[in-house]
Design a protein around this nucleic acid. Structure first.
Lengths: 334, 334
DNA sequence: GTGAAAGCGCTAACAG
DNA sequence: CTGTTAGCGCTTTCAC
């Protein structure tokens, strides 16, 4: 059987209260007893049970992270960042892939609260405000990695999508492009709309007129990005550059271009968004707008931990800046 | 405050024992009281605390998974598979990225045991037998996703690396290749050696003599795969095909070939190992030996759960078969 | 400085 | 069928 606090108390010839105090550094204990108790703990290889201490009202040092899909590199990288930062604070993280299925999401939330996690980071996309509201009423600390402004007071970290789009557009324009296509993810999503809006604004600011026919919706899969690019390339007046709202779509666009006999970047410049590993893997290496994944992870965890510790009165909204990463998928317009 | 079993008991006008029984479906309760209690639970939105019930000796329904790095697509996919299967059994999983750093590994193991996880799945690589032994003595159920036979009795799932290498070699030979290069990960690792040995055996069986000069060590990064291929391509008598021991190395090889002005697959066939997302992303799409990631995840979880439930007397070793996935990175030898 | 004792929320005999 | 009661391993007053 695993040794308990009683075992070390007995072996050390003190009371369990004393042992508890040396474990937690609370109360006043003489250096002598402290050292002795520590020695005994070591000897018995005693590790306090966190479930028992959690029951006594302390925290579980556990947080939940809900994401759409861990197998998606973007979220895997987010998860890794959250894990690392959490670990620095002594937290373990339960990762929950919801596939954006509301049912799974509810089930996971229910499990997480039953396990008395200290807080939850929400990076999945389904969360209807309605549902979030219930969680908040449940008093459980929450922080979000969001793509749109929640209509609720929740700690949130977001990336400036408009700026990202603007950076992408500017870059293409500086390279001399005028006919710039855009592949959005899903126009019903604010975040995607913002990226497109940013790119378009960059064009307007440079006095180049966006062509509505060059703005299409692509979704989230390589295949759909490819299909979207196919449509773009079958038009009469082809674009010389395309801004894809995520790296996966950008990869689809490159594949499509290649199939149409177009060289990237010589005949078609492609710029993506996210800067996942994939961007470094494709050929040509993808110029893209980087999301500061490490920072996103750090910041949400920081927000959540402050919330957990109750050190914070007000909710915060952190807006992070995206950044252009130039690789080889964009070239000057011919 | 969150409602407790006492609140439910009181509101329902029964004892906590009765409530506990309806929660767990134990004992004999009249349908009438059961329904009534259930209603009250619903009304109070009561969810039993798993930490309390864990303290009472039942399990925590939590398992740990140690991997080298969650940001590595192969392990992210493994983690997702484990998560899904675990969830089917009602388990949540703590994911621990160790970076193959023994210190981190020890720290994570210590945390996991303090949190009283019901079991641990080890897919990280550092675990010295010495260390594993201690865990086993700790009585905590363990299952491994291994690359080599552990010298201990542990539930393990492995993939037949030799067969995988053989399949890769055979495929290349069937395409008419004779000068086949190999990029190993690390010759000190059994698994890598086995893949190379398998490929070589395929050659021997086909009466083609392997050229030792064409077998190099590449590591795990795209860059190192590229460097390895560079070396191969600077030889006098160049290979017409290369078997890379993982997809990342294969991608490096493709990049190198391209830089040397060689067309893949026309002038150089490349075959990888793992079949991660990356294989579908590269250009050309990578022909590779697929590891049955879903199955690996399912099987380890199954082994671990049996172990946890104590339904199993003997440890098991499950050997899964790899499978050739043909895409476009290999062509007939010219 | 140190210890006795009362819980935390739940389960599991054991009575009735 | 239902309730009483004794813990699970730890934290936390409150005495001494």
């Amino acid at each position: 059987m695993k040794p308990t606090i009683y075992d070390v108390a007995e072996a050390a010839g003190v009371s369990i209260a004393t042992v508890s105090k040396v474990i937690n550094g609370t109360g006043r204990i003489s250096d002598k007893t402290r050292k002795h108790v520590l020695d005994v703990m070591e000897e018995l290889k005693y590790k306090p049970s966190m479930v028992a201490s959690a029951l006594t009202g302390k925290s579980t040092f556990t947080i939940g992270l809900t994401i759409p899909d861990l197998a998606n590199p973007f979220f895997a990288e987010i998860a890794r960042a959250v894990e690392d930062r959490g670990h620095e604070y002594g937290f373990n993280v339960f990762i929950c892939s919801t596939d954006n299925d509301p049912e799974k999401e509810v089930k996971y939330f229910s499990l997480l609260t039953q396990k008395r996690v200290d807080g939850i980071i929400i990076a999945s996309r389904t969360q209807k405000d309605q549902f979030l509201k219930r969680l908040i009423q449940h008093q459980i600390p929450i922080a979000m990695i969001a793509r749109e402004m929640p209509t609720l007071a929740v700690d949130t970290v977001m990336v400036d999508d408009f700026l990202g789009g603007y950076q992408a557009g500017s870059h293409l324009i500086e390279l001399g492009h005028r006919r710039i296509a855009m592949i959005a993810e899903d126009m019903s999503e604010m975040s995607s709309r913002e990226r497109v809006r940013g790119c378009r604004q960059a064009m307007l600011d440079a006095k180049v007129e966006p062509d509505e026919a060059l703005i299409v919706v692509g979704g989230f899969a390589v295949e759909s990005g490819k299909a979207a690019m196919d449509r773009l390339l079958e038009q009469d007046h082809k674009p010389t550059a395309v801004f894809a709202c995520n790296d996966v779509l950008a990869i689809g666009a490159i594949q499509s271009a290649r199939q149409h006999g177009l060289q990237v970047p010589k005949e078609l410049s492609v710029i993506g968004f996210d800067n996942t590993v994939l961007a470094t893997i494709v050929d040509p290496p993808l110029t893209t707008i980087a999301q500061p994944i490490q920072d996103i992870g750090r910041q949400v965890v920081d927000l959540l931990v402050e919330e957990i510790k109750g050190e914070k009165a007000l909710k915060q909204r952190v807006l992070l800046m995206p950044q252009l990463v130039v690789r080889s998928s964009c070239a000057p317009a011919q």
